[in-house]
Design a protein around this nucleic acid. Sequence first.
DNA 1: ACAATAACGAGAGCATTGCTCTTGCTTGGA
DNA 2: TCCAAGCAAGAGCAATGCTCTCGTTATTGT
Lengths: 243, 243
Amino acid sequence: MSTIRGARERARTEITAAIKDEARAQLAAEGAAKLSLRAVARELGMASSALYRYFPSRDDLLTALIVDAYDAVGAAAEAALAAAPPAADHCARWTAACSAVRAWALDHPHQYALIYGSPVPGYTAPKDTVAPASRVALALVSVIRDAHRTNGLALPPLSLGVRPEADRMAADIAPDLPPAVVTAMVAAWSQLFGTISFELFGHFNNVVADRDAFFEHTATRLAHEVGLRPQAAGASAGSSAGS
Amino acid sequence: MSTIRGARERARTEITAAIKDEARAQLAAEGAAKLSLRAVARELGMASSALYRYFPSRDDLLTALIVDAYDAVGAAAEAALAAAPPAADHCARWTAACSAVRAWALDHPHQYALIYGSPVPGYTAPKDTVAPASRVALALVSVIRDAHRTNGLALPPLSLGVRPEADRMAADIAPDLPPAVVTAMVAAWSQLFGTISFELFGHFNNVVADRDAFFEHTATRLAHEVGLRPQAAGASAGSSAGS
DNA sequence: ACAATAACGAGAGCATTGCTCTTGCTTGGA
DNA sequence: TCCAAGCAAGAGCAATGCTCTCGTTATTGT
């Protein structure tokens, strides 16, 4: 409200950012388990107790990093979609978003583990996390919505058992999409991260060698599962999109 | 190999088991991050230093728990398959194995997080873990192999990009199965755990309400993905298998 | 302009942790 | 019987998260 906003306030945001940066560096270097408030303070040249003016506890620092990480993956997915216009091949847009998420995960494995691995601390997800956490899912939904608007998506009917839950999810998430599509999309969403997590957490060691090819294939199959078909006809007739 | 093998040796295995039990209890109560050697020793009425005679470090204790957890999920999956003979509906056997894994995960969330969440400590997976870690995957392979032997599994041809990797995986994992099936099976394997992890780690909060129905549906679709089709004909004509 | 208030940084301190080292005791085999 | 190996306990070290207190500094209200 005041004019200059005070040197103090600016210093606060700067120091807060510096703390988070240093914490991220330690996270990337050693993992979440080894992230130490004292080491962060030491590296920043301040007393460890001073840090508590900015983050009331270690878990709060972690939570801040979690929110930032969710935002970063979400932004990566959205950027991939922004690079391919909604008019383009919907199947390719889907796989592009998936690949963007995977690329971010490979670039920031510890941040990825922070948000998609085991809940770290006493783990209570505060309200601040739910909005950033939804960004990837919303990006995927937007691809499907575009595809549904232009082509219309048709999926085989759901079995009786899921139908009530499918209707509920559709009404809750995307009332403009068929329940079968929404259900398939939620499944594909979780399965996408299952594949990325397995690769990142080492479960593919001695199993999958060419991870790029395998992921490309998996993402494409997930696209099929949600009703997206490659625009086979049209201009470019190249069989496989990538490399 | 000798006769009595000494009371000492027996005491050692007993104490080792007691330590692991207490550690498991703490794991279930507080999570892997809070598992403390000193607390385990305290609870067992022994000095903390005495614990190091049995496990050279905290990470070694964790590793022992990891091995046990892998064995437990693997055993759960195998038991589910043993309950349904190989002659039965292959699709139902697949979903039964999947559901068994999920049930174990819901019953032992922290042990599940230990093995399928973020790698916890300095995380180096020793050789001892790889065999137990494969049990679930091998159980799933056995279902597919049985199905392939009796019915033969046919899947649409793979795109050019994955074909080399698919051949490599098939030769490495199950040379008697078509590469397309093996590839789909690896994907389904990781996706299964993606769905379970999302449910367990809270990513389905405010998204999926009827988790049982959703999982049943997802597992069935995964079965279709690997080429398993429900034995629709025969006796019972009910549309959906489960209740 | 001045004083009250709030934010701030630093240091000391507490409880706890993983781990090591040394010191005795107990057991198993010669 | 006696010795070596296994064992348990205690003290101790470095490090952690967190709290409290005490001066200092900036902001704000009058």
